[in-house]
Simulated assay, not measured.
Amino acid sequence: MSEITTLTIKIPAELKELIKNAAADAQHSLSAEVWARLEKSFATHDEKPVDDKKGKKVVKAEEPEIEVDNQHLGEHTEPALTQKELKKLRQLLSKAPNKKK
């Protein structure tokens, strides 16, 4: 695989947490964890996973060649507005002059 590409998918939050925890346990990125698991799912029966230090069968995950998130696909979320902030916003909106043409 010489070319690296981006894949955006929708999965349940619980599954994402499981993947994140597995990646943290293996000390590699979320992307590398998903990559390894996908490759493992397509592996032929001739290929054998490597034993890790604990005797578990694993597929060695490789870090993607791309280090920078140049497409800004990182997971940045804004916190939800508090009830106090929502109330203030509603007040401001109700006081705003309606410009009719």
Rank of each mutant, 00 (worst) to 15 (best):
D46L: 13
E33A: 10
T44Y: 04
A23H: 14
K16M: 08
G55D: 14
V50T: 13
E47Q: 15
D46R: 15
L30S: 02
K60E: 03
S41R: 11
P49W: 08
S29K: 02
P49N: 08
S29M: 02
A61E: 00
A24V: 08
E14Q: 08
D46V: 07
W35I: 01
K40C: 04
Q27K: 14
E17S: 15
K54E: 10
A36E: 05
I19C: 10
A43L: 05
E65R: 13
A13V: 04
I66T: 13
P64Q: 04
V34M: 13
D25I: 00
A22W: 05
E63M: 01
E17M: 12
V68A: 15
A32T: 05
H45Y: 13
V59S: 00
A13F: 05
L30T: 02
P49R: 10
E14L: 02
D25V: 01
W35C: 04
K60W: 00
A32F: 07
H45A: 15
K57P: 10
S31D: 09
L30H: 14
P12K: 10
K10H: 12
D52Q: 03
E62S: 03
V68Y: 14
V50M: 10
V58C: 12
L18Y: 11
K10T: 12
K40Y: 03
V68N: 14
T44V: 04
E39P: 01
K54M: 06
E67P: 01
E39C: 03
K56L: 07
E14H: 04
K40D: 07
L38P: 01
E65Q: 09
I11Q: 12
V68I: 15
E39V: 01
